[in-house]
Design a binder for these strands. Structure first.
Lengths: 134, 134
DNA sequence: ATTAGTGCAAATCATTTGCAATTAG
DNA sequence: CTAATTGCAAATGATTTGCACTAAT
């Protein structure tokens, strides 16, 4: 195996790897915490030499989502979370803490739906709610 | 069978049936459109004798959700939608129009998940994406 | 009278945008 | 030089809140 490199990933996806974009992408690749834009700003601003504004975080996240580098995840009203896992997967939300966990598509039974034929389904997402212990 | 009465419903759920609350509840019972707070305000303000402010719409929606009279549905970043259908069901989002349709729980196969035993699942929601024709 | 509910306007929060300054090619 | 990117600050959109006013017990 070889390490996931943020800069390579951005180049492969056709996004110019500016320092800010690399650093945000690196952070998202390094965590499974599904951070919000503000959490990303806090984490990345401290640890890095480059300057980083809130506007750039938002602009970058939008760019990365559009390029398919990351995914936007909405688990609660009012704010978005971001996930560098762009493979087919679902989510588990701890209803006490709000923490979000990835659930691989393979560990759930495929959903088969008997819908009115006018519904043309492209895909679906499952969100589990509950408590994650420990 | 007997008609669904907004005022009775509110009383049954322990919510004082003020004119504003009754009217909002009636509207939500009458539609399957999953309206946003603003859409509710527009629809209800015109047709009704009582005055209705935006603040009251928001306050009422929160009250109704907490009382279990309605459900909040988040299908897109940035705003919530509301649904008087509080039975167990899922949603279909038309990705072109943003329209949201209810999908009864019975028409999809139950999701069985093989999760780490520390995930205590209370329930799950499925959101389908696609195109609804016509 | 007391308490709950409403409306208004101001406040707040997340996100977006206009624009001048900066940087990379 | 030219175009893309960034930061700042102002703007926007959704939602919440403080407070005076009204209605109901």
């Amino acid at each position: 195996m070889h390490e996931i490199n943020a800069e390579e990933l951005l180049l492969k996806k056709g996004v110019k790897p500016t320092p800010q974009r690399v650093v945000i992408t690196q952070y998202l690749l390094s965590t499974h915490s599904h951070p919000t834009a503000d959490e990303i700003l806090d984490e990345v601003k401290n640890a890095l030499p480059v300057s980083l504004s809130r506007a750039t975080v938002y602009n970058t996240l939008k760019t990365l989502v559009e390029a398919g580098v990351i995914q936007e995840v909405v688990t609660e009203p009012g704010r978005s979370r971001y996930d560098a896992n762009v493979s087919d997967h679902h989510h588990f939300v701890d209803t006490e803490t709000g923490a979000v966990f990835d659930i691989p598509a393979e560990v759930i039974t495929p959903v088969r739906a008997t819908l009115d034929e006018r519904f043309k389904v492209d895909g679906y997402k499952v969100v589990f709610f509950g408590r994650r212990q420990d």
